[in-house]
Design a binder for these strands. Structure first.
Lengths: 250, 250
DNA sequence: CGTTTAATTGAAAGCAGTCAAACTATGTGG
DNA sequence: CCACATAGTTTGACTGCTTTCAATTAAACG
């Protein structure tokens, strides 16, 4: 079978990392009936207050979770990369508490809510894997609260870059040379609770100090070790398995 | 049986709210072997980097989750109230990514990790309830990121007070007249990403504007509606069941 | 009561925000 | 292939919310 026929494969591989799944479980998940669709940048997969329709998995591209204050200020709450489940939230809760927006052109696999719920109730291993995956998401959120709450602008943005690099690399989507950042500076601002203007200044500062290289949207890491120091970054909170501690290790 | 004999009762009641548990499940949970202990304010239940020992439930008193930056700045990430499970994190992940500290004198019920894990694998309903409980925690974390990231000091502190009031009331631990806030202004500062000095000024400002009343640690709400407006507070993100929407409702 | 911890207040400094304008990519249609 | 439009980036000057530093007052505790 071709990879194109198995849009859920990366997602299932990711999940099986959290709890060793039986091959039956893996097959049951991979074979889940899905509906594929493509969305353009800026379009919404889920809006705040929506009732859940399906449970979707990100096959290709990048999306963000976001919330807004009544004053209209936006906060990006999480960045999802290919292979991520977008809404276990909606799988089990009845109203969405945040919106999900496409950063890039994305491919989404919709899984039937009922089918996945049945699977969870039937296969304890799958339930456990989903719990762990959810707990890791929560751990990342805790780090974001710390990041936004207690680090200055420079560390905050550096931290965002470090986290993104490590998560991408763990899925084989980036190497030591860096990665394409799928965000405008305005979006970086909304993720780091800063203004676009200030993001620009900080980015230039990091570049001036040879902590990052930039070309278009590409971010390079000439001195990964030092960037981690500036960012106060430690990958512990990502709860990755030992075998993933590769290139960016220490 | 007396309530004193069932320290897990409030926790189980809470959990059953998230997924209707069979009476067998309820009994299995309530009868879980526990070890009760008492801790003084300021003592640590869990330190960052700890391997998990047991899974503990908060019976009495208040604890906070917290993280610190390498520069030593502290961020409170969550506040737990009686009936909350303190570490589903530790139940399934292998290293703690944050510390848990007692705000007040607390009573803790330690549940054996293995016993609870067995139960999760055996009872799908319990697994589902735990998933939902974890998802609600994550939703609260998302709101905290927004709160700390995009609201000014006044709204931020008001929001903290609103959330605490609503959560306490849902467990029957506070009424319309207000509640005892189990935190010093320094701790409020660490929860709202401000300095203690500024917390003091904002609190005085809220009091001056008749948005709250204060006496010692007691917080009263003379105009709940208006406070919610200032706080930009909506209880949606708490994902409470309909029957809990009582006194503080709108 | 004396001692420690928490709350309060004032003055000054600073990090990030706001406003505004210029510049650079990227894309589109003639 | 170029002119124009649009979106994103960059820069400067100024403002302001929050922090920092320091000192005083009030409350909690043994």
């Amino acid at each position: 079978m071709l990879a194109a026929d198995l849009p859920l494969a990366p997602f299932v591989r990711e999940l099986s990392r959290y709890g060793p799944l039986q091959s039956d479980d893996v097959r049951a998940l991979t074979d889940l009936p899905t509906h594929l669709r493509t969305l353009d940048p800026g379009s919404y997969l889920i809006r705040e207050g929506d009732p859940p329709k399906s449970c979707c998995v990100l096959v290709d591209g990048f999306v963000v979770r976001q919330k807004v204050t009544s004053a209209g200020a936006r906060q990006i709450i999480a960045i999802c990369i290919p292979g991520d489940a977008i809404d276990f939230q909606n799988l089990f809760l009845s109203l969405s508490d945040h919106a999900v927006m496409a950063l890039t052109k994305v491919r989404i696999a919709d899984i039937s809510r009922e089918a996945l719920q049945r699977l969870v109730l039937k296969c304890p291993q799958i339930a456990e894997a989903i719990i762990k995956s959810t707990l890791v998401d929560a751990s990342i959120l805790r780090e974001w609260v710390l990041n936004v709450g207690r680090r200055d602008a420079r560390a905050r943005i550096a931290h965002l870059l470090c986290e993104f690099a490590v998560r991408l690399e763990a899925r084989g989507l980036a190497g030591r040379d860096g990665f394409e950042l799928p965000m405008t500076q305005e979006q970086i601002a909304d993720a780091s609770s800063l203004t676009p203007v200030h993001v620009n200044r900080v980015l230039k500062g990091l570049e001036r100090d040879e902590l990052i290289h930039r070309f278009r949207r590409h971010i390079g890491f000439p001195d990964w070790r030092r960037l981690q120091d500036v960012a106060d970054f430690s990958r512990n909170y990502l709860h990755m398995a030992a075998e993933d501690q590769m290139a960016y290790a220490h």
